[in-house]
Design a protein around this nucleic acid. Structure first.
Length: 528
RNA sequence: GUCCCCAUCGUCUAGCUCGGCCUAGGACAUCGGCCUUUCACGUCGGUAACACGGGUUCGAAUCCCGUUGGGGACGCCA
């Protein structure tokens, strides 16, 4: 952990301490916008040099379609995205669907859909691993030919047995290498292929966020790279793909940190220099265990459906593990400008829905009302406020004004749509409690006076309405609240809304008169 | 069990690289004042943290060691 900014240190194992110290002093001063990677001397910066691709930065987001795109995946994708955009690299989407039993096309669609909604555009792909069997076969073949891998005839039951025994004896449950020494393969058994892991020495992962992490090779096992059904396994496929696609930087969840030494060994076996690694800490639920369904909504589309804006979700997510001084709200351009892997924190973060809600409110507040129209429309439709063809007939200017009055009091599109209901709908449902309190004999006179006033009003604008109210207050000798609240309840069905004069103007004369008329009916009914 | 990672307010974090600028800053949440026709927004203020124990040092949130706590990985899952 002594060299934290080790994107640099990645390739340094061979050079002397003096050089390291020199570089630490002179090139690693972490001024915030410092672009260390590009400043590194060329001679120690060679990644996948012999690959068909040049030194351009290439990163990938590689979800497995065994579920929807979730919050954690979205954050990983975001960090990859920001990093590439900042460096002018290439962002690749790769679907890791080698687990045929759990991967589904539906989930692939959902992931793509989620990525699009978030606005995380990829430059290449989506590649599907199931389309690339030939590539993997040739890579496995090479391993076998080079004597870096061998066939294994142990059955799953035997292995399970060995594992249990090892754990019982307090040993790491690694493969014992039985078949490694095998001369005569038993007949009638479809073998798997195992990688020959070096038994001694250590493998060092030099991680941009975690620093140097050492693994004793004796703890690594001869893991299976090809299943008995002929399909390759994860730890092998990632490497094959990352080599094949010329990936230069791997940014992923830190649940993969333990796999990394295995993968580095595969790179070595192929004679390739490993890419630069950056392992992001996990997002936890409120009880500090790994975030999962039982902590509430975790899929990206669930947040879309709850009325969150993608920019807000992204902004919230980026602040989990990354910060830039005291700044909380960032535009995408700012993020791209300010992001760096070196300033990503090492500790895991607890997902806090309340702060996300606040963040979303900030984005709704600062959005342009016109831009919110199309975003809120689906919620208006699903809430039954309008029909699907509403957009064609509505007066956009009017709707924008209505939205403007609600922006500062809506934290999600769902809330916005709900409030918009009383501007748009033909009638409103009056909240029972509010009705009892404000629509009754005591307020009847006010309601009648307002209705009469409004119907006679020449200029039906907020200021005209205000003048009317002022004259009524004088007439009745009361405070504004006395008159305004019953009217608000009559018009919006509730005690909460934007300023009453504005609300009246936006609802319009006809609807106001009918709603107040109805309230008058209720009030006089409860009188008798 | 073994290996790996992590540790500042309830939560996200700044500060740690280069020890003194820290009686630890910001944000969410929370509590109170103000604003106000309600709610909200806004605004002003409050409560609230360096996990613990040892070192090193004139001086430690910051460096070292240990402990504890949390997380992750150990699969013919990814």
């Amino acid at each position: 952990m002594f060299i934290r900014s080790s994107a640099f240190a990645a390739s340094v194992l061979i050079i002397t301490t003096d050089i390291i110290n020199y570089l630490k002093k002179n090139t690693l001063k972490p001024t915030i916008n410092n672009d260390k990677i590009n400043k590194r001397p060329q001679n120690i910066y060679k990644i996948c040099k012999e690959d068909r691709l040049t030194h351009q930065i290439r990163v990938r987001f590689a979800p497995s379609p065994t579920g929807y795109l979730h919050i954690g995946g979205a954050r990983t994708a975001l960090f990859n995205y920001l990093f590439t955009r900042k460096k002018g690299g290439v962002f690749i989407l790769r679907i890791e669907d080698t687990d045929r039993t759990r991967s589904t096309d539906e989930y692939i669609e959902a992931i793509i859909d989620g990525m699009k909604w978030l606005g995380l555009r990829w430059d290449e792909g989506p590649y599907r691993q199931t389309d690339r069997a030939d590539v993997y076969n040739s890579y496995v073949q090479r391993m076998l030919e080079d004597g870096k891998a061998y066939y294994c005839y142990c059955s799953p039951d035997e292995l399970e047995e060995k594992r249990k025994r090892a754990i019982a004896n307090g040993k790491p449950p690694k493969y014992d290498g039985t078949c490694r020494r095998l001369k005569e393969p038993p007949a009638y058994i479809k073998p798997t292929v195992r990688f020959k892991m070096p038994a001694t020495g250590e493998t060092v992962v030099d991680d941009v966020v975690k620093g140097m992490v050492h693994f004793d090779n004796s703890t690594l096992d001869d893991f299976i790279i090809l299943r008995s059904d002929g399909t390759p396994t994860y730890n092998f496929v990632v490497v094959a793909d990352d080599i094949d696609m010329g990936i230069t930087h791997i940014i992923r969840g830190d649940d993969h940190l333990n796999n990394t030494p295995k993968q580095i060994q595969i790179y070595e076996a192929f004679g390739k220099k490993p890419p630069i690694f950056a392992h992001l800490s996990m997002i936890l639920g409120s009880d500090k265990s790994r975030l999962s369904k039982r902590h509430g909504a975790t899929s990206v589309q669930a947040y879309r459906d709850m009325g969150y804006l993608p920019e807000a979700l992204l902004n919230y997510l980026v602040r989990l593990g990354w910060s830039y001084g005291d700044q909380e709200v960032f535009s995408m351009d700012e993020l791209i400008d300010k992001f760096s892997l070196e300033s990503v924190g090492r500790a895991s973060a607890v997902f806090n829905p309340e702060k996300l809600l606040w963040m979303n409110g900030e984005y709704i507040k600062s959005a342009r009302a016109e831009d919110l129209i199309d975003k809120v429309l689906p919620f208006l439709v699903s809430g039954g406020v309008v029909s699907a063809d509403y957009r064609q007939s509505v007066d956009s200017v009017w709707l924008s004004r209505a939205i403007t009055t609600l922006q500062e009091r809506s934290r999600t599109l769902v809330e916005l749509a709900r409030s918009l209901g009383y501007y748009i709908a033909g009638d409103v449902e009056i909240d029972e409690k509010a009705c009892k309190k404000f629509i009754n004999p005591a307020t009847l006179d006010y309601l009648v006076a307002v209705r009469d006033g409004l119907s006679a009003l020449e200029v039906f604008t907020a200021s005209g309405v205000e003048a009317l109210f002022m004259s009524l207050l004088e007439k009745f000798g009361v405070q504004l609240g006395k008159v305004a609240q019953p009217v608000r309840v009559a018009l919006t069905g509730n005690t909460v809304s934007p300023g009453i004069f504005e609300v009246i103007e936006l609802i319009g004369r006809d609807k106001c008169l009918s709603r107040i008329g109805r309230a008058i009916g209720i009030a006089s009914l409860s009188a008798g």
